[in-house]
Amino acid sequence: MPEPKSAFDATYPCDFYEPAELFEPDQMYTVPEIGRLLQGLEADAEVDPDTEAVLVDWAVPWVMVHAEDMVVGEPLEEDGPGYYGLAPHAIDDADSEDGA
């Protein structure tokens, strides 16, 4: 059910990280790990299953929106998760923005 904005003490900008801000260039991450990173947690932080489900729900569309700046790695095990990391051009773009 929608709520009036006046019901909230404060509202905040809806800013999300760019992949180059979120990922280490030499690492690959699962969707649950990406969800944790988007919340400012460590990729391996312990979260309860209900929280993890919400984080995954947020991470999936973020991955889709930023797909052009990412690469995909096949699961390391037959029934394991896929992994995502920075595309080479996203690393180069981040370096050039930093003045490197």
Rank of each mutant, 00 (worst) to 15 (best):
D95G: 06
D57F: 11
Y83I: 01
E46T: 12
P75S: 05
V65D: 14
V60A: 09
K5R: 14
D15Y: 14
G99M: 02
D15P: 09
L22H: 11
F23M: 10
G80C: 01
E52Y: 00
T30C: 00
E68H: 09
A100L: 13
M1C: 04
V60E: 14
Q39A: 13
D79W: 06
A90K: 10
E78N: 08
E78P: 03
P81W: 05
E68V: 02
E97V: 07
P75W: 02
A90H: 05
V65K: 15
W58E: 15
D26C: 03
G73R: 11
P88E: 03
D93T: 03
V63I: 14
L37T: 02
L41C: 06
E78I: 00
D15A: 14
A94K: 02
A90M: 02
T30M: 01
A87D: 10
Y17S: 14
D48W: 05
S96D: 10
W58F: 14
E18H: 11
A45N: 04
D44H: 06
D57I: 00
V63D: 07
E46R: 14
D44G: 09
C14I: 08
H89I: 01
E46P: 11
M64W: 11
M64G: 14
L22Q: 12
E42Y: 10
F23S: 04
P19D: 07
H66M: 09
D44Q: 06
T11G: 03
L37R: 12
V65L: 12
G35M: 05
